[in-house]
Nucleic acid binder design. Sequence first.
DNA 1: ACTTCGACTTAGTACATTATAA
DNA 2: TTATAATGTACTAAGTCGAAGT
Length: 788
Amino acid sequence: MSDSSSDDDIALSKRNKASLNGNGKKRKKINSSDDDDDVPLSKRIATPPASSPLKKRKTEPKSKSTSKNGTSKKDVKEEPITPKKATVKKSTTSPTKKSTTASKKAVKKDDDKDKDKGKVKISKVKKEEKEDTPSQSQQPEEQEDEETYKWWEAEDLDGEVKWDSLEHNGVLFPPEYEPLPSHVKLWYSGKPIDLPPTAEEVAGFYAAMLETDHAKNEVFQKNFFEDFLQVIKETKDDQLRSTIVSFDQCDFSKMYAHFEQLREEKKGLSKDEKKRIKEEKEKLEEPYKTCYLNGRAELVGNFRVEPPGLFRGRGAHPKTGKLKRRVFPENVTLNLSKDAKVPPPPPGHEWGEIRHDNTVTWLAMWKENIADNLKYVRFAASSSIKGQSDFKKFETARNLKNYVDAIRKDYTKNLKSELMQERQLASATYLIDKFALRAGGEKGDDEADTVGCCSLRFEHITLKPPNIVVFDFLGKDSIRFYQEVEVDKQVFKNLRIFKKSPKGPGDDLFDRINPSILNKQLQNYMKGLTAKVFRTYNASKTMQDQLDLIPNEGTVAEKLVKFNAANRTVAILCNHQRTVSKSHGNTVQKINDKLKEFLWQKIRLKKMILLLEPNLKKKDKKYFEEIEDLIKEDEEYIHDLVITRQREQVLKKMVRDNEKLKSENEPLLTEKSDSIKEKLDKIKELEDDYKKELKTGKPVMRKTVTVEKLKQQIETIETRILNTTLQLKDKEDNSEVSLGTSKMNYIDPRLTVMFSKKYDVPIEKLFTKTLREKFTWAIESADKDWRF
DNA sequence: ACTTCGACTTAGTACATTATAA
DNA sequence: TTATAATGTACTAAGTCGAAGT
């Protein structure tokens, strides 16, 4: 069992195979999507091709042990940080002194009062009445009720130092592994196997995912199994080691079934019990949720250490399925004030490192073992520190409008530059500006092969004279970017040059530039300008323009629809997608059936009118024209639909009633029971009527009606048809577009606030609670006339 | 000059909760 | 009231970008 060393080979042999031509570092990968040659526009191909699309959702038991593990957590929380009383920071602390040394990190952290940042004025000092109850009980509620710190009314900070004091209670570790009950085992070669807990845990990770697409992915299986073998090796159980050698012999289904059962049980819990469990969980988390930044309470974002599991890489990630190992306190570095109390590590453990670096904003950090990346515990999105940088981001983007004309003019000119590098820079900037591409840094062979602007390769664009470019590549998260667009003539020419031989598939389109060069160039125009600013700028600009088109009229619901439509144009610009839910096809089918049925009803009613007054047909030809639209097959189909549905309803109700009767020990109903039979007979009668109708083409009328009434009914149905049609269209339009990402990251929230105020649409309809908290600064600072 | 590292933002998906239809 | 669909949140992977390292 070679361990890690072999990762690379496995990792998608297919993909790397191709890479030879071009210079060494270039990767090649021509068919990112073997199987989807003609996927409809912008359909993602990230997901593994095979796999049955209609699989019902399987949830994998997240981490085993539903139980309240008994680990040490509690001990830890015994002393949450003391509420640090109000630290009234004098508003005017040393006004700006420019941070002297440019970059020394960690140099000036801690408490020397003369930080550079200075000038944060506290507009409202929070008082903490709780001070006398030092321990656990500082409830967030109380604190929330107090005035929150309005940093946006304070002066800005600018500089290296991010805080003056920082206190927190560390991080929450996942519960220890609890071995499965003895009757649940991994089976191998048809026999149950005893696994030591560490190995069983890993097997369980896979078992829990058995019905997911991941588990069916070969790379995933390979990576998982390799690491599984490695863990077995680490157990030093030589016999076991020699037993388990082949993935194909492993049968995880028993374990899977067990997890399913646990899930069911959990679902079946009574309300009270669920509530109790939840409360317990909250209590456990309590101490970690809040920290103190410069003496003020702030929420922590991800205070939970990521639990071990199998790495779920997106797209064709070479490392997908590898074991993400458990993180121990020894792996964790905490960051807090020098004079802050260091939270006690879980009993029997030590913290890896304690740091006091006030030039960064993370509270804790550890290194993950898949790609050796750092993972951070940070402040929540609603925190002042995040809010400030968010604000800054939008102000930078907003500032771009003062420069964008010049920049565009320049790059248009430079499209013809004699210098290849300049020409490439100009062309790349054009693409970023026009199509909202990302910068596109280099990626390694041990990552999914995705690209952005600077890393576009030969095969990612196709040129169609005179000036059409077809983009087709996988971007961030392996989301497909497919667009057929018209471009500037000169850009088209340039792209053709950039593709000229000897370049071929696998070669970089922009071989003279990279994001670093590009950004450096952009900085010349404006401080803080980088490639990603264009995405923010263009997104917000687009939103502003779209909102400007909306008339201030109609109901709230109508205005909301328009707002969402504007939001959608932005999402489409940024290529924000989501997978269509596997039930989507079904849903659409259902709606279509509904529509058909409405139509049928309508026509049927019209026929009735004619039965009552045949001469109307000549009088109002148009009105009755559509009767011909209904073809026999459809009619039959709908009859069947209606009849089947009614029967099912009756039977379903019977089943439900029976459950009640059963518990009361009453005799059960059957299809023979009088009440049921009566209903069924009626349906049968209806069915016969329909059959007759089908033959004669004349609806059977059992009740007396008037033409007036029928016309009225028709009208009702018509509005229903209209509504349903709209609903369907909306659903289709939206099914693969994700509005959330742009709302959260790209559209200046002040635009949304402006819309809310100007159009009188409650902000609750536009921002969810979390977004309202994140964007409090915008809600309080923008008015109805605000402009991006 | 280029690569790697560190810290931060952006992103889709899995799961939980709430709203709506039946 | 219950089943299902829509919406919202938690989670963590995957980007960007500046600075350190070589």
